[in-house]
Design a protein around this nucleic acid. Structure first.
Length: 631
RNA sequence: GCCGGCGUAGCUCAGUCGGUAGAGCAGCGCACUCGUAAUGCGCAGGUCUUCGGUUCAAGUCCGAUCGCCGGCUCCA
């Protein structure tokens, strides 16, 4: 007899019960997909012969969905093998919001084929095939996979040293897997296949490209429907679609990855930059601007030639080689070196809205999020070693202020460490990495380590913002660099009168104006906050005869620095309101005979609708209270 | 760059079996003189991405090209 304890104080003594029977005995078996046995995820079918604490994993919980989706990936693999005999299976994990499975298929498939696979999955789900766990000796499994021509599975087994490997079987399908899984396939009735894509075996582009099918699974229909609806909402917010509809920017075939900003997009960018500049001045930064094109020799000296050439564009001037800058630091260093620096100048915070060009591979371009020319809100801080931590904390404070307080974003922080093509000694890297980590710890923010993702000249702290469908984009970054100061032999005169080497911090807050704008568009679904909206107020006369009064109102608003547009088209009021709403203009002023005779305005808010009439002064006061980080 | 898909009017999309291109919105004109999310009528707008091939005939079939979309790899 073994003794089992539940988390709500349940107790049970039984002889070799299954996990499921224990939960059933306690009456908590409904909606359960697996269980934690002494904290370890376990199948419901598993038979226990030792004392244990047993806790259910509910289908709707995060772990439950993980189990469900992982099982769904097996179900999909089974269906694919039925429909496409000869398919080799690779790996099929659960991921955020769903799952995928990679296959080598005998024939290419497209999204049109997904319906057929779904149908087969539903058939298998209905059949309620028991999902059983087997323990197979490693060597036997390896031989079996090799004999079956399952080269990918064989490769995976070859890397495992355990004596026994667990395999899950459902009907005619078996897959090596840690589990746990649902007890039978009837748990997998709410699945949806989403897309098919290519994916390199083991994520290495030197390897063969497999076919990956993405899908998702939920505990019930409501969960699945809610997810599909959320995806739809995400598409509605896509910055590429809104960018066109709101006439913010365009990217033409003549310039792939090189966006054109339209007048309205420029208003947003200019306000953003205006805010950025004020905030930096407040925080003790100065601003510089360096050339887009500089002598190739500079890039050899900086190490970019050796470490970043593939991403650079080159040109020639008077038969001498030049490069288009992919980063701003070398130019900034030239400015630093242009005069003698004293310790009294440090920390020296030199900001630059630098336009950089980088050759990005064609397949990675994505609206404003991934482009080939972008404006970094860059800054280089030249500091003494003793000032490093304090300056990093200062940048983190600025970042928190901009992301959270000004725009209301969620973000997370990563520490990216030494990459493969790193420049400089391992000791320097260790020193730099621990300095960053120390600052992170002191700041108290949660962070995770992103190994091998540092810049070639130093480790970095990265700030990631979420877009509308939960994809995250790196925006801000703080990079600690001992290399460039050496390479460029920059110095400052210390209090002792001797030459000392400063340390360099590279950092951005917004990251790139382009990407940040893309994220702003999606975050606000195009309805920008008042202070940054391209058009803040739309003046709408009820009929053409009121043009004169409308012009008067327009002039008055302009004199208050309000960005105002008039709609003088010979259209019905409803139409003009609708158009202004769709352009997401924060305020609409409806002007009719009544307003003209009283000298008032009828104000409509884009979210709450008609606010009634007010005097121009009252409107001015109201607009003056709108949030603006520059005030 | 790689895998798969898609390119028809400014935008969103029809276009059957290969027979010589159509709608809505936007634009322009006219009428309506209008009160909080689409007034009506008319006009104009296309080398069907581009180049080549098959065919009596190609938007439609085939190949390439450029671009875009979803991923992978790579990155702000």
């Amino acid at each position: 007899m073994s003794k089992f304890t539940g988390t709500a104080g349940q107790v049970l003594e039984a002889e070799k019960p299954s996990v499921f029977s224990i939960l059933k005995e306690w009456g908590i078996h409904k909606g359960v997909v697996a269980a934690l046995v002494n904290g370890k995820p376990t199948d419901l079918r598993t038979v226990l012969f030792f004392d244990a604490v047993v806790e259910p994993i509910m289908a709707e919980s995060e772990e439950g969905l993980h189990v469900l989706r992982h099982s769904a990936s097996h179900l999909m693999a089974q269906a694919v093998l039925h429909l496409y005999p000869g398919t080799k299976v690779a790996i099929g994990p659960s991921i955020k919001d769903g799952f995928y499975y990679d296959f080598e298929l005998p024939v290419p498939i497209s999204e049109e084929d997904l319906a057929g696979i779904e149908e087969e999955m539903n058939k298998l789900a209905k059949a309620a095939l028991p999902v059983e766990r087997l323990e197979i000796p490693r060597d036997e499994l390896l031989v079996n996979y090799e004999a079956a021509g399952e080269v990918y599975k064989a490769e995976l087994v070859a890397d495992i040293t355990d004596e026994k490997i667990s395999v899950y079987r459902q009907g005619d399908f078996e897959d090596m897997c840690r589990g746990p899984h649902v007890p039978d396939t009837s748990f997998l009735k709410h699945t949806k296949l989403l897309s098919v894509a290519g994916a390199y075996w083991r994520g290495d582009e030197k390897n063969i490209m497999l076919t990956r099918i993405y899908g998702t699974a939920f505990a019930d229909k409501a969960g699945l429907d809610a997810y599909l609806k959320r995806m739809e909402e995400a598409r509605r917010r896509d910055h590429r679609k809104l960018g066109r509809e709101l006439d913010l920017f365009s990217i033409q075939a003549e310039g792939p990855g090189f966006p054109c900003f339209h007048p309205k997009g420029m208003v947003v960018l200019n306000n953003l930059v205006d805010f950025w500049r004020r905030e930096h001045i407040r925080r003790g930064y100065c601003e510089i601007r360096t050339p887009l094109i500089l002598d190739k020799e500079l890039w050899v000296r900086s190490g970019h030639w050796d470490h970043y050439k593939e991403n650079m564009y080159f040109t020639e001037i008077d038969e001498k080689p030049y490069a288009v800058k992919p980063m701003n630091c070398p130019g900034g260093l030239l400015v630093y070196k242009s005069s003698l620096k004293s310790y009294r100048d440090l920390p020296l915070r030199m900001a630059e809205l630098g336009i950089v060009h980088r050759h990005e591979r064609s397949g990675v371009l994505h609206g404003l999020m991934r482009v080939r020319c972008f404006t970094q809100d860059d800054a280089h801080l030249y500091v003494t070693p003793a000032q490093i931590k304090q300056e990093i904390l200062g940048i983190m404070d600025l970042t928190r202020y901009v992301y959270r307080d000004v725009f209301g974003f969620n973000y997370h922080v990563e520490l990216s460490t030494r990459p493969e093509n790193a420049m400089g000694s391992p000791e320097m890297w260790e020193k730099a990495e621990s300095a960053l980590e120390e600052a992170l710890k002191e700041s108290g923010v949660a962070y995770r380590i992103n190994p091998g993702d540092g810049a070639f000249y130093g480790p970095k702290i990265d700030f990631h913002l979420e877009d509308c469908i939960g994809r995250t984009w790196q925006c801000g970054t703080i990079q600690l660099d001992f290399q460039m100061p050496e390479r460029f032999d920059i110095t400052y005169v210390g209090p002792d009168g001797a030459q000392h080497r400063p340390v360099m911090l590279h950092r951005t807050v917004l990251g790139s104006l382009e990407r940040f704008l893309g994220i702003l568009i999606e975050h606000f679904a195009g309805a920008f906050p008042y202070w940054i909206a391209p058009v803040q107020v739309k003046v709408i006369p009820v009929k053409p005869e009121l043009e004169e009064y409308a012009r008067k109102v327009e002039t008055q608003l302009k004199s208050w620095d309000v960005r105002v547009e008039m709609d003088l088209r010979d259209e019905k009021l409803g139409k003009k309101i609708r158009d202004a709403q769709m352009q997401k203009v924060p305020y609409m002023l409806v002007l009719g005979e009544r307003e003209m005779s009283e000298g008032t305005l009828s104000v409509r808010d884009r979210t709450s609708g008609d606010l009634g009439t007010m005097t121009p002064e009252a409107l001015r006061e109201k607009l003056g209270k709108e949030f603006d980080p520059r005030h």
